[in-house]
Design a protein around this nucleic acid. Structure first.
Lengths: 221, 221
DNA sequence: ACAAAAGTGTTCCTCATACACCCATGT
DNA sequence: ACATGGGTGTATGAGGAACACTTTTGT
């Protein structure tokens, strides 16, 4: 039994995933999701947190949830392996460090992450879809932002992950009006030209009510 | 690696789950979810479907989806076992047949299913919550009904699973107005007194748009 | 006639959408 | 002055909540 990680973040405004380049057969030279075996004394979530820390150096403040299990009999040609996939979401994370059987690790824009090793393309697709869904009705978008953040930064998360454009004015009114969603810090931040933006932190609410509307735009990726 | 099943249905109007009485230690005499080991040549979903067929005799027409994995190191005191839980939902299913290491199997109302063996209470809670969530925005409720069914029967699914009362008139308008959700058969059925009800089958749509509202119920007084 | 269940019409209100408009700052 | 991004006001329409009302059956 292994755990594999779909680690999502925003890098230079692009919805990106952490991938490792395989240094060994099978799938040598192909991109893969980071992961590893569950140790005998570990919980599944604990194994996922350990792998996340090994790859990124961070665990605190990173959202981590179970995504699903993948156990087709020959998904790994070497042996029968059932993997439990986890979805991790954090603010712009530091450049990754190579480790384990990975010859290299990098942030890759989701739309460019193609033809991964094993069934990792399926797992990535499911993870991205989970993230897109949860933006609608939870406060997950704030997990992509360093605190404190502006309303515009939060809107850019939705626009990058969903691949759509949202009306800045209606977006502002909606997120500031949802009770418990945002907590104003009272401070402001200047972003080049224009009026300074108010700064916020995550509020106590986990759910966004009413949910954010996702248009019918086609999804790249 | 095992699979465990949360099989939900409606029995006499009660939201019920299929449980087996354990005949062996550990947890001898306690209720547990049905399940078993994944065979070497099986997919995870295939193992779940096989277990479902062994316990209920049915697979066709039963909704089956992966729920999540549970792998705490000592969840089974005998050995390290990671289980992949599946959620199954079907119309009023036949009385179950004992099999495997189960001394007895029965349909138990969800609210009476307490203190299950292993971590099965957690798994059941997650499965029930998954079913409740998916009623909101998918056509999953129809999986609880034998076809063809009436709008009232469909409404009783929501009321039993959610434990609320819904306005029959607004419910009727909503489900018949959602495109692709219900297909009228043109036939009618008499239910004792009252005007006969039109009969429907599931439509091609998997999603219910806009979703059914579960939140603010009419407050008494 | 009456009760009961199915189904329709109507009113009120919340909220998504679109967009006009004002605010605060850098160049 | 003007461009740019932050933020508010307002009109319109879709749809949820509540409920009066009609339709169709059994007793």
């Amino acid at each position: 039994v292994t755990v594999d990680l779909v680690v999502l973040t925003l890098r230079d405004g692009a919805h990106s995933v952490l991938l490792v380049r395989r240094g060994e057969a099978p799938f040598r030279g192909r991109w893969a999701l980071p992961g590893g075996f569950v140790r005998p004394d570990e919980d599944l979530g604990g194994a996922a947190a350990r792998e996340l820390e090994e790859e990124t150096g961070l665990v605190e403040g990173v959202h981590l949830e179970q995504l699903g299990s993948y156990g087709a009999p020959r998904r790994d040609p070497r042996m029968r392996v059932v993997t439990v996939a986890y979805l991790a979401i954090g603010p712009s994370l530091p450049d990754p460090v190579a480790g384990g059987d990975a010859s290299h690790a990098a942030w890759v824009p989701v739309r460019e992450a193609r033809r991964l090793a094993f069934d990792h393309s399926d797992i990535l697709r499911d993870g991205v879809e989970r993230a897109r869904s949860k933006l609608e009705y939870t406060s997950l978008a704030a997990a992509f932002c360093d605190e404190p953040f502006t309303v515009s930064e939060l809107r850019e998360v939705y626009e990058a992950v969903w691949g759509v454009e949202l009306d800045p004015r209606n977006f502002h009114r909606k997120v500031t009006g949802a009770v418990g969603f945002l907590q104003p810090t009272g401070e402001q931040r200047q972003e080049g030209r224009g009026r300074p933006a108010q700064l916020f932190r995550r509020g106590p609410a986990d759910l966004l009510l009413p949910p954010m509307m996702r248009g019918n735009q086609p999804q790249p990726g």
